[in-house]
């Protein structure tokens, strides 16, 4: 609970996350957070009154209209952005600057085009100075897990969008982060690839038991993947409702879609988002 000094910060979070550290659990607490930007001499409130508790190993999806501050929320958790008021805690530590114990996936894969798929994944290890053999072993595991086998030596421009996003996911998971942050990771993909990656993400989440915060535009994606869905309203962004999805963690795609619980959750999100835009 004590605030970490700069020195211990480096030692505790850079490098592979040790088992001991991982056992501390990937919890996230957002307490009454607000974010204001100053644009053209005018204050714009991006987020206000946002409070959210994410339990260890939980999968939370965040949906809402464009520009409601969903991505801002992820950046707060990652420590890439400082809240104007309120507090963010990751694994029972106050967030002060970029967190090194998270994995981050953007909508664009953001791969280095001069590196092969494998070496893009290994960037994570190089930056953290992970032991080389451990990094190689882990990369091989992830490549197999995400179905990248055979594409290890391909360069980003030789890969499809779905394959590129798989590489980005591997890179985000290499150091076994307790918390995985995903900002519309499948938003740029075609429907079929997206569906396939949703199925894979469900499996990967169950295998790694990492805490996931997923920002998405897709209502179906949110309901298929998440334990809880945070529905946000438009500017200033705030939480309209948090919906529990009462489905088992292991989810067959078609069968889940047919569940009454799935229909209830998606229906509720539509109601809320419709109400949010109608109130505009």
């Amino acid at each position: 609970m004590t605030e970490r000094s700069e020195g211990t910060d480096k030692h505790s979070t850079v490098g592979p996350v040790t088992e001991q550290e991982a056992s501390r659990g990937g919890t996230v607490q957002i307490e009454d957070v607000a974010v204001r930007f100053r644009m053209k001499k005018k204050d714009v409130t991006a987020l206000r009154d946002v409070s959210l508790d994410v339990a260890e190993g939980e999968f939370v999806a965040i949906v809402g209209p464009s520009g409601c501050g969903k991505s801002t929320l992820l950046k707060l958790v990652a420590g890439l952005l400082k809240p104007s008021s309120g507090a963010v805690r990751v694994r029972d530590e106050a967030v002060k600057g970029p967190r090194h114990d998270i994995g981050y996936v953007f909508q664009r894969a953001a791969l280095l085009e001069w590196r092969s798929a494998r070496r893009n994944i290994l960037l994570q290890a190089e930056m953290r100075r992970m032991p080389a053999d451990r990094a190689r072993e882990r990369t091989a595991e992830l490549i197999a897990m995400t179905g990248l086998t055979g594409f290890e030596d391909a360069y980003p421009h030789e890969l499809s969008g779905g394959m590129q996003q798989r590489v980005a996911l591997c890179r985000a998971l290499l150091h076994e982060p307790p918390v995985l942050l995903m900002d519309e990771p499948f938003g740029a993909l075609d429907a079929l690839t997206r569906e396939q990656l949703n199925i894979e993400l469900n499996r990967i989440w169950r295998e790694t038991r990492t805490t996931v915060l997923l920002v998405t535009h897709s209502i179906a994606e949110a309901a298929y993947l998440a334990n809880r869905i945070v529905v946000m309203t438009d500017r200033p962004g705030t939480i309209a409702e948090i919906i529990d999805v009462d489905l088992p963690d292991e989810r067959d795609y078609a069968a889940t879609m047919a569940q009454p619980e799935f229909a209830r959750a998606t229906g509720r999100i539509r109601d809320l988002l419709g109400a949010a835009s109608a109130a505009d």
Partner: peptide, 9 residues
């Protein structure tokens, strides 16, 4: 990419 690099320490 720069933000990602920051999260990598």
């Amino acid at each position: 990419m720069i933000q990602l690099s920051a999260t990598m320490g």
